[in-house]
């Protein structure tokens, strides 16, 4: 018997999955509608809603930065976890390589988002 039980890292991934799932369930549809349809097609919202000065100011604001980071990072972790656990269902062995690929791409995306938000400045 092992002297100490090894702690599982699953709760971390599950918490990120849950947080991203909740955030995307609450705001996802409207975010897609605003950024993907309303603004590009000029529906409903003023034409300069996502203009450069506005988005720059939003990304430089502390709350705006936090919001952008939470949306991108948590959506990625949510999707990575769900895709990883669905691999077995479509007949792909969910081993270490698949785990590294799924969670690794979420990690790369998270770091890129953090980098971009730092470059944009405060």
């Amino acid at each position: 018997m092992k002297p100490t039980l090894k702690r599982s890292n699953a709760p971390i991934f599950w918490a990120l999955f849950g947080a991203g799932g909740m955030l995307s369930a609450l705001l996802g549809p409207m975010l897609v509608f605003i950024t993907g349809l309303a603004v590009p097609l000029g529906w409903l919202l003023p034409p300069d809603t996502m203009s450069y000065p506005r988005m720059l100011a939003f990304a430089q604001n502390f709350i705006g930065k936090g919001f952008i980071f939470a949306i991108i990072a948590l959506f990625l972790w949510h999707a990575a976890h769900r895709i990883f656990h669905s691999l077995h269902d479509i007949g792909i062995h969910a081993g270490t390589a698949a785990k590294l690929l799924c969670y690794g791409s979420a990690m790369v995306g998270t770091l890129l988002a953090a980098y971009a938000l730092l470059v944009i400045g405060f």
Binding site: F75, A79, L112, A113
Partner: peptide, 16 residues
Amino acid sequence: VAAYAGILLFGLLRLA
């Protein structure tokens, strides 16, 4: 969800 987050991430990098 992943593809949409990817599009947003790309937009954020372009903003920077």
